[in-house]
Design a protein around this nucleic acid. Structure first.
Lengths: 255, 255
DNA sequence: CGGAAGATTGAGCAGGATCAAAAAATGTGG
DNA sequence: CCACATTTTTTGATCCTGCTCAATCTTCCG
């Protein structure tokens, strides 16, 4: 249990034990559905790292897959560099959302994970986790649930990109973030975006200029109120209708 | 072990036991990494259905999630209907590729799965599978590997859609199918597409006309030879280079 | 053989990318 | 705390690519 060295480049994690039992992400994260004894078992595996400051990478694409990571606070983006060197953002990860589950097959990470803001992160060595899962059925079940959630989430994202209108893509992202913040106990209608406009553009596969204009349009239409990174959803029903999530009837009623 | 009734609408599966031990998809599917005793355990769970003819659905979005499905032969597409009623195709599934793993969290299927051609399918009740996985570590491991593969695959798909050029998107799909066929013992350079042009369009988020033109372009450039659904990859290196999978150097060399 | 669905080809249009510049926010050092 | 430098975001103008509409051709069924 040595003190953290302030050396910036070293991403080695300290051996600090996690406190899953007192973590408020309990029911979003790995411990969900487990009893106290099981959680204790989990805590022996999980270690908390020194916080990652903005821009620091948790791991890079092609690095060997050893562990999965879960932010406790802050936010993380995962991306891969395209053929032209541009960042293709694959996901934004809020506290309790597991990162790195895609590395199991190839035994290496498929993506690069980078902190969007100061982020406390838990590291979970995957081999230990798997062994524990074999002993603790509740852990096995929850681990699979998290993987299933990841699959469903990516499918949802494919749907978002399938929608052609930039405004609708942006609306879907804002609604998605809204729900995820709400589930974490934050406001569903007012929150700070952890990512830049360019990040949003790279995620929605749009030009940054288009994202800016899309924000303008949503604001002009009275759906959201945007001030820099602060977003307030002024009419969530209309926003959902506009995004195409509601039926055609609702849509016409809201417009 | 009653004979299958020919009633078309009934998707109830017959109780026929699977023969995972003699299935040639062994190392792609669930049995991978398991010993004979473990496979025998798995066979008690898996049941083979009467083949699904073209256009028949294995399950529909919103239906309760009870089982996952694996085609033994043929091909299956998964999709969801967009707000405007259009089919948004999420995936094409070849033999050995598990379908339905996204249903675990919400306890209902997120997508509709439909046979693209006559398809033999294995049905695996998920609760039984999970119980078996808790007893058989090799099964637990492989199940997680399959889920991880699914996540990585969806991420790859997001990358494909991120690419703006229709020709490159199509090239990436063809290369993807090529690899997947190759791993199944089929030719990597010559194969029949199981899906229509419209399906390809719905998958790549393009208009059908654009897909047609993209095929024309790839053919004119001497990368592929297309006759209806028969595809022959005449220059796989150039095709990979064109798709952006290879480095910029390779790309300039091939063009 | 005929009908229908699917695929291809062509012409015109619109929407998002790109290029360019101004404005705002962020951060840094004095 | 402010001034300055840098980055980020917004706004404007133009261009180009993929969508739409329309017609033809093909294939696949009964």
């Amino acid at each position: 249990m040595t003190a953290d060295s302030p050396t910036a480049n070293v991403v080695t994690l300290s051996g600090l034990k996690a406190a899953c039992s007192t973590c408020n992400l309990h029911d979003l994260c790995l411990p969900y559905g487990m009893n106290d004894a099981d959680v204790a078992e989990l805590e022996r595996i999980v270690s908390r790292s020194r916080p990652f400051s903005r821009g620091r990478t948790l791991f890079r694409a092609d690095e060997p897959f050893r562990a999965i990571y879960v932010p406790r606070s802050g936010a993380v983006k995962t991306y891969i560099l395209g053929a032209d060197g541009s960042e293709q953002i694959i996901g934004f990860h809020l506290p309790g959302e597991v990162i790195g589950l895609d590395g199991m097959v190839e035994h290496r990470h498929q993506l690069t994970a980078q902190a969007l803001e100061l982020a406390g992160v838990c590291e979970v060595p995957f081999d230990l986790l798997e062994h524990a899962a074999a002993r603790v059925p509740a852990l096995q079940h929850q681990l699979m649930r998290l993987m299933s959630r990841e699959i469903a989430g990516k499918e949802q994202q494919l749907l978002t990109l399938g929608d052609h209108s930039p405004e609708r893509r942006l609306a879907l992202l804002l609604l998605d973030l809204s729900q995820r913040y709400a589930r974490r106990g934050f406001s569903a209608t007012e929150f700070n975006l952890p990512m830049s406009r360019q990040d949003i553009a790279a995620y929605l596969r749009l030009a940054a200029e288009t994202v800016s204009r899309a924000f303008g349009k949503l604001q002009r239409d009275g759906l959201v109120d945007v001030n820099g990174r602060l977003v307030r959803i002024t009419n969530s029903i209309a926003l959902a209708a506009f995004s195409g999530q509601l039926s055609a009837d609702d849509q016409s009623r809201a417009s």
